[in-house]
Computed example of a mutant assay.
Amino acid sequence: MPLVRLDISHVRNLASVRFEPSSQVNIIIGENGSGKTSVLEAIHLLSFGRSFRSHKHKTYIQHEQDSCLVFAQLHNEHGRPTPVGLQRHRDGQIEVRIQGERAQSVIELAERLPVQLINPDAFRLLEGSPSVRRQFIDWGVFHFDGSFIRAWRGWQKALKQRNTLLRRGKISPSLLAAFDQELIRLGEQVNGSRKAYVERLTPYFLQVLSVLNAELAVSLQFYQGWDSQKTLQMAVEAGRERDIELGYTHSGPQRADLRVKSAGGDALDTLSRGQQKLVVSALKIAQGQLLIEMGRPLVFLVDDLPAELDANHRQKLCRLLESLNSQIFITSVGPDTTDFTWADTTDVRHFSMNNGELSLSSKGFQES
Rank of each mutant, 00 (worst) to 15 (best):
R5Q: 12
D7M: 15
I8R: 02
S9I: 13
V11G: 04
A15P: 00
A15Q: 14
S16W: 14
V17P: 01
E20W: 07
E20F: 06
V25Y: 02
I29C: 00
G30I: 04
V39S: 02
E41F: 00
A42Q: 01
H44E: 04
L46W: 04
G49Q: 01
S54N: 06
S54K: 05
H55G: 12
Q62E: 11
D66S: 14
A72N: 04
Q73H: 10
H75M: 14
R88H: 10
E95M: 15
V96M: 07
Q99P: 05
G100N: 02
E101L: 07
R102W: 10
R102Y: 09
V106D: 00
I107M: 15
L113S: 08
P114W: 00
L117H: 01
L117M: 04
F123N: 12
L125R: 10
V132T: 14
F136C: 14
F136G: 06
F136M: 15
D138V: 06
G140C: 07
D145R: 05
R150C: 04
G154L: 01
A158W: 03
K160Q: 13
K160R: 09
R168Y: 15
P173I: 02
L176M: 04
D180S: 12
I184V: 10
G187M: 09
V190C: 09
R194E: 13
Y197V: 02
V198F: 08
L201T: 10
T202S: 15
F205L: 12
V208N: 06
V211K: 03
L212I: 03
N213K: 11
E215L: 08
S219W: 14
Q221V: 13
F222A: 05
R240A: 05
E241D: 03
Y248A: 10
T249L: 01
G252Y: 00
L258Q: 00
R259Y: 07
A263I: 15
D266W: 08
D269M: 11
S272V: 11
Q276W: 01
K277G: 09
L278K: 08
L278E: 01
V279F: 07
S281W: 08
K284S: 11
Q287I: 03
L290M: 13
L291P: 03
D304P: 13
L309Y: 05
L309I: 12
H313P: 07
R314F: 07
S323I: 12
S323V: 10
I328W: 01
F329A: 08
I330Q: 06
D336T: 11
D339Q: 14
T341V: 13
N354Q: 14
N355L: 15
F365V: 01
